[in-house]
């Protein structure tokens, strides 16, 4: 017996259903969820430290790292409620990790949950973890070719945040090239230029997140 069976069946990555369960839970509880992706050392935690004073009364963060709770401790020192997920080697967070961690993390009073993914500009782009939006953080020290080289990270994101702008005088980085490459991938992509050291751009980025949460009907 030789037989060909037509299936035309759509396949989602493992974890898609769990991400949808998480989304439903966040929606019910009125929590807007932002998944921050970016390379190791892109300044994701520093960005959150800069945001912390403005959001600590209604926000919390989950830190994803292979090892250590150093980032959680940094955010706590900045006054933000924070929890750590250690992936013990995995290069990204997945929905099951977030679901399991939330059993230990009370979200009472949280309206904005920021999940800082494992430092990696490739794999986290492909995983839904129950977030409303992804935001890609790319630093000026990584080089201005990164938006062109990692278009998937751009495509799945709802905004791009350039970090470490205070270092622009010292590094060879053309931010306008980054903006152009981002907009070549997604024409209307919101593009923020920030510095955690000077605070530049933090309020604009936060205002935009608030607008997204309001537009989603979550807040």
């Amino acid at each position: 017996m030789d037989k060909t069976v037509k299936l035309e069946q759509k396949v989602k990555a493992k974890g898609h259903e769990i991400a949808e369960e998480l989304r439903a839970m966040f929606r019910q509880r009125g929590i807007y969820v932002v998944n921050i992706i970016g390379s190791p050392g892109a300044g994701k935690t520093a960005l959150l430290e800069a945001l912390a004073p403005h959001i600590r009364d209604h926000a919390a963060a989950i830190e994803g790292d292979l090892q250590t709770d150093e980032d959680k401790q940094r955010l706590e020192r900045a006054g933000l409620r924070a929890w750590q997920i250690n992936t013990s080697g995995a290069c990204h967070l997945d929905a099951a990790m977030v679901r399991d961690a939330l059993k230990e993390f009370p979200l009472d009073g949280v309206k904005l949950l920021i999940i800082e993914n494992v430092g990696n500009l490739v794999c986290p782009a492909s995983f839904e973890i129950g977030e409303d939006i992804k935001v890609a953080a790319i630093s000026v020290t990584e080089g201005d070719d990164k938006p062109a080289k990692y278009p998937t990270a751009i495509r799945v994101s709802s905004a791009v945040v350039i970090t470490k702008a205070d270092l622009l005088p010292h590094v060879r980085c053309n931010v306008e090239r980054m903006r152009k490459d981002v907009h070549a991938t997604v024409a209307e992509m919101p593009f923020f230029i920030t510095s955690a050291q000077t605070g530049t751009g933090a309020k604009e980025f936060l205002g935009w997140i608030g607008d997204q949460a309001n537009a989603s009907g979550r807040w």
Partner: peptide, 10 residues
């Protein structure tokens, strides 16, 4: 999208 178009069995 990732689609399984068909499978061949023997």
């Amino acid at each position: 999208e990732l689609i399984i178009e068909e499978i061949e069995l023997n």
